[in-house]
Design a protein around this nucleic acid. Structure first.
Lengths: 339, 339
DNA sequence: CTGAAAGCGCTTACAG
DNA sequence: CTGAAAGCGCTTACAG
């Protein structure tokens, strides 16, 4: 046990003003980079700030200015899932990097399922000037009404029926899925199965739609469609089930590389050869795509860039600029060994 | 392009007071759960809050109370490293879980190398009531003086020469390394190499010390000691170098499972059998330890629990409670196939 | 149990 | 270029 040392009081504007022999208004002007301050007053203030190690109190500043200079990145997933999915890491990285070059701070909010209302209150309580929302599930109504109170930008199309304008940065998931499926069809395969993503998310729905379009365009019917949750475990399990049920297929499209990774493992365990027996493609060009056996042919999206754009759009909106509601990013077909 | 819709103004205490027909003081009391409010006044206020969807402004509250009800978790690593290391994920998870059960919010701060001063200013600017600091490098002096301004709790011993009281949650790294090394020695191995961690961190230094102690206690001398950075890549590279230099060893202790994972790959590539030719152990019982070939015998620390304890101690300190400066957590030897 | 009033530490027209 | 003063939205003794 130790004794509680007294907390050193933080220097205030007032103290700086006294030491510099000017008014608080002048100190405030120096701190905020106004040019309407004479050189010697500025010098005195700057020295006083240094001597007192003064840092402006954010709460006071926020209250006076009506802005906080910080934005939130909300991930409505639990912590375990957040860390397991390389997609999140990349988006955070991109956003963090962009924000680092601005006057804003990025606050990462993992809204645990335990109390989503806490996050909503935080957002509504004037802690941030705007919010980035990732991985939005339709059932999650938490943010539906926030759009009218706070600028927001979504990563991935929301399924919200919200009346407000919704700003989204996304890829064309339908086209991406169509393209990945066509790679399989081009191999001459005719019995195509899909392991789809959650159907309460735009990305989950749209990738299924794209698969169906490609299959039908080729005059075929899907051999099987199963719904997973984007994780390797779900891909593995679903593939085991398909094999166990003797489903007949020679092509497989998975809505995420993570699920593809799991499915590939299950195929290998069953002695089914890829791509000889089954041609496989997926969406996401992440570490799972690269480290699977064989490496996956995928549609690359660029989540780091997505995070960057999201942050850029949000900050522009906060500053009153007009930005497009929809930003659709390009994707890229990456040919590896699984197709 | 879209038109900028007008932002709906957030309801204020004042508005709630008017609608409920009471003073602002009474509204404040209801919001803060004071019991000195008559039932009917309370009812009226609660209804007004509901109707106006009122959420207290945090900045104003912070300013008035002198506290923010939020704490920061600072990780002085870049985003890529943060996401690559399962240790961080677990600590965050533990801390987030503990904080979720309190009135506090957890803010995750990835202090990019780009501008560490920004983080310091944030911490000093009254944004949070306290800070958790992870993975502290000796060279990083950013937080040295913050301890007198803000309650802080470190994850892992700091090498700071700071005069303030320092609160740390850690394992006994020396004992852990000694124990892991003794497992190898018990196999009758006499030529022990170590891949150590960064020597500017407590965990890096102490695990090397423990290794040396165990080796000397057995009347031996280390066969080789190389310094890595805890990542799989560094373990892989160092092991390639040892093999390339024909270093003669029959035992290997790595300061992290990640480095052990990489070293095991390099050993396999060189056709060296584990544990037949080389007996290997490591610290950290994470996904790398479990998925390496063969699975690693390790000393498990419990980072999730560490995060929990860190958060608990910090919040207690904020609330003025006395807590011990040092919290040393137990570890556990996990026997797998590599020793 | 309740309200009037001061105060938290800033910013920002306004006047000079 | 500079300062006095009002105001941001809360909380909290103080008085009743």
């Amino acid at each position: 046990m130790s004794t509680q040392e007294p907390r050193k009081p933080q220097a205030t504007l007032e103290l700086v003003a006294q030491r510099a022999g000017v008014s608080r208004a002048t100190v405030s002007r120096v701190v905020n980079g106004s040019d309407r301050v004479k050189a010697d007053a500025r010098k005195a203030v700057e020295q006083a700030i240094r001597e007192l190690n003064y840092v402006p109190n954010r709460a006071a500043r926020s209250l006076a200015q009506g802005r906080t200079n910080s934005i939130a990145l909300v991930v409505p997933e639990n912590t375990a899932k957040f860390f397991a999915d390389p997609y999140f890491a990349k988006v955070v990285q991109g956003a963090a990097q962009y924000v680092a070059g601005t006057e804003f701070m990025l606050t990462l909010l993992l809204s645990t399922e335990s109390d989503p209302a806490k996050t909503t209150r935080y957002l509504q309580g004037g802690n941030v000037d705007g919010a980035l929302v990732l991985s939005h599930h339709a059932a999650d109504r938490s943010y539906a009404d926030l759009g009218s109170l706070l600028p927001m930008v979504y990563g991935g199309r929301t399924m919200s029926t919200d009346q407000n304008e919704i700003y989204v940065v996304d890829i064309d998931n339908i086209a991406a899925a169509r393209q990945a499926t066509e790679v399989i069809i081009a191999q001459g395969r005719t019995k195509l199965a899909m392991i789809a993503g959650p159907q309460d998310m735009g990305a989950g729905l749209d990738r299924l739609t794209g698969f169906q379009q490609a299959v039908r365009n080729a005059g075929l019917e899907p051999a099987a469609v199963e719904i997973g949750d984007f994780t390797p475990a779900s891909g593995h399990q679903i593939m085991q089930r398909l094999i166990g049920n003797n489903v007949d297929f020679d092509g497989l499209f998975t809505a995420s590389a993570q699920m593809g990774f799991g499915a590939l493992q299950a195929l290998a365990e069953a002695g089914i050869k890829v791509p000889e027996d089954v041609s496989v493609t997926a969406v996401d060009d992440d570490s799972f795509a690269r480290s699977s056996t064989p490496p996956l042919t995928t549609i690359a999206q660029f989540p780091e860039r997505q995070g960057e754009i999201m942050a850029e759009l949000l900050i522009k909106r906060i500053q009153g600029e007009q930005v497009p509601e929809w930003s659709i990013m390009d994707t890229q077909l990456v040919l590896r060994d699984s197709h």
